[in-house]
C-alpha cells in the first residue's frame, strides 16, 4: 500500500497551493499525502499495522515471524473478500448489511448440496450465481424502487438468514474429499512458511478488484458516483448500471467469502458469521474508505482486515485478555479512524 499511495496522491493535489516556498518540497509533499482524505487514513492504518506488529514482536518472542503474518491471511481470507466487495458498495455511498447472512447461506447451500452428493464443480459456481443474483435483486430494489441501501440489504439479510434455517437448523459437516483437501492443503513457500489455497484465491480477488477499481472505466464511475451521483449522471456516466453492479459484486464476493469460510470451518451452520457485516464495514472504514463514498482503496480495506486480524492475534497471544476485548478494541479503532477522516476531510474543504 505504502508504495501505491504516494504515487497516486500527487494527481489529486493540484488545487493545493504551495504555502511556503522556503520549505523543502519533500516535507511539503509528505505532509500533503498525510493530510489528504484520499491517502492519509490509509497511511495511518499502515503505520498502525506496523506498530502493532512491532509491539507484538517485542512482547512475545514467537510473534515476529513470517507465519504469524501469513496466518493473518489464512484466518481472515473470507473477511478480506467480504471487505473487498464492501469497498465497492461503500465507494458509491451505499452499504451492504447482508454479507454476513449471505456467507452463512452459501455455507449452508454448500454443505447441504455436498451432503446429497453434488459435485463441488457444480456447487461452487451455483453458489456464486445464487449470491450474485441476490445482489442483483438488492441492486434493482435500490435503484428502481429507490429503497434505501440500508433497508434493502437489511431485507436481504433477513431473507438469507431465514433461508439458512429453511435448509437446516443444525450444523452440517462437510466430508466431501475436494473440500477437505482444499481445507487441509498447505502450499509451502520455503523457510517453513506455508499458505492455504484460500490465500491464493484471496490474492487473485484482490488483484482483480484493484484492476477493476483503479484501471477500468467502471472503476472510475464507481468513484464518480461516490463523489456526486448527480454530477455523474449529468456527465453521462452509466450511473444506474454501475449502482446495480456494485451490489452484484458485493453479492458475488459474499458468496465467494462463504465458500472460503466453508473451506475454513468445513461445515455449514445457520448461525455462523453473525455480525461479520460489521467487521467488514469496520475493516473498510479503518482501511481509509470514506463512508460517504468517493475516497478509498481496495488495498486499504485489505490492510483494515489485517489490522483487525492482528488485534485478534495479539489478544490470543496475550492469553489473559478475554475475547470480548476484541470488540471493544475494534469499536475504539473505528472511532479513532472516523474522527481522523473527519479532521482530514474538513481541513481540505
Amino acid at each position: 500500500m505504502s508504495t501505491l499511495a504516494p504515487e497516486r496522491a500527487p494527481r489529486s493535489e493540484q488545487p493545493a497551493p504551495r504555502r511556503s516556498a522556503s520549505r523543502p518540497a519533500l516535507v511539503e509533499r509528505v505532509r500533503d499525502v498525510f493530510t489528504s482524505p484520499k491517502s492519509g487514513p490509509v497511511l495511518v492504518t499502515a503505520i498502525l499495522f506496523v506498530a502493532v506488529f512491532a509491539v507484538g514482536g517485542v512482547r512475545y518472542p514467537a510473534f515476529l515471524s513470517g507465519q504469524v503474518f501469513l496466518n493473518l491471511f489464512v484466518d481472515n481470507a473470507y473477511l478480506i473478500v467480504l471487505a473487498v466487495g464492501m469497498t465497492f458498495v461503500i465507494l458509491t455511498g451505499g452499504i451492504d448489511l447482508s454479507v454476513g447472512a449471505v456467507v452463512a447461506l452459501s455455507g449452508m447451500i454448500a454443505a447441504s448440496l455436498l451432503q446429497s452428493g453434488w459435485s463441488p464443480g457444480v456447487v461452487i459456481p451455483l453458489i456464486l450465481v445464487i449470491t450474485s443474483v441476490l445482489g442483483l435483486l438488492v441492486g434493482l430494489m435500490i435503484h428502481v424502487f429507490e429503497v434505501q441501501p440500508f433497508i434493502a440489504t437489511l431485507a436481504a439479510m433477513f431473507l438469507a438468514r431465514g433461508l439458512c434455517y429453511v435448509i437446516s437448523q443444525n450444523s452440517i459437516s462437510i466430508t466431501e474429499p475436494t473440500f477437505v483437501a482444499l481445507a487441509v492443503t498447505r502450499i509451502p513457500l520455503g523457510g517453513g512458511l506455508s499458505i492455504t489455497p484460500s490465500v491464493v484465491i484471496v490474492l487473485v480477488v484482490i488483484a482483480v478488484a484493484v484492476w477493476v477499481l483503479h484501471f477500468t472505466r467502471f472503476g472510475r464511475t464507481v468513484y464518480a458516483i461516490g463523489g456526486g451521483e448527480h454530477s455523474g449522471m449529468l456527465m453521462g456516466l452509466p450511473v444506474a448500471r454501475t449502482k446495480v453492479i456494485v451490489y452484484v459484486i458485493s453479492g458475488f464476493c459474499s458468496g465467494l467469502a462463504g465458500v472460503l469460510f466453508t473451506f475454513y470451518t468445513l461445515s455449514g451452520y445457520p448461525l455462523s458469521a453473525i455480525g461479520t457485516e460489521l467487521d467488514a464495514i469496520a475493516a473498510v472504514v479503518i482501511g481509509g474508505t470514506l463512508l460517504t463514498g468517493g475516497f478509498g482503496f481496495v488495498l486499504g480495506s485489505v490492510l483494515g482486515v489485517l489490522v483487525l486480524g492482528i488485534i485478534q492475534t495479539i489478544i490470543t497471544f496475550e492469553g489473559t485478555l478475554s475475547s470480548w476485548w476484541t470488540r471493544i478494541f475494534i469499536g475504539g479503532l473505528l472511532l479513532v479512524f472516523i474522527i481522523l477522516q473527519k479532521v482530514l476531510t474538513s481541513r481540505r474543504r
Partner: peptide, 23 residues
C-alpha cells in the same frame, strides 16, 4: 459536535457495546 454520520457514529457503540456488556 464532531459531525460524524449517524450510522457510523452509532456503529462504534454497537460494536463496542456488547463487549462492554460482557465486561
Amino acid at each position: 459536535v464532531i459531525g460524524i454520520q449517524p450510522i457510523i457514529a452509532t456503529l462504534v457503540l454497537m460494536t463496542a457495546g456488547r463487549g462492554i456488556a460482557m465486561l
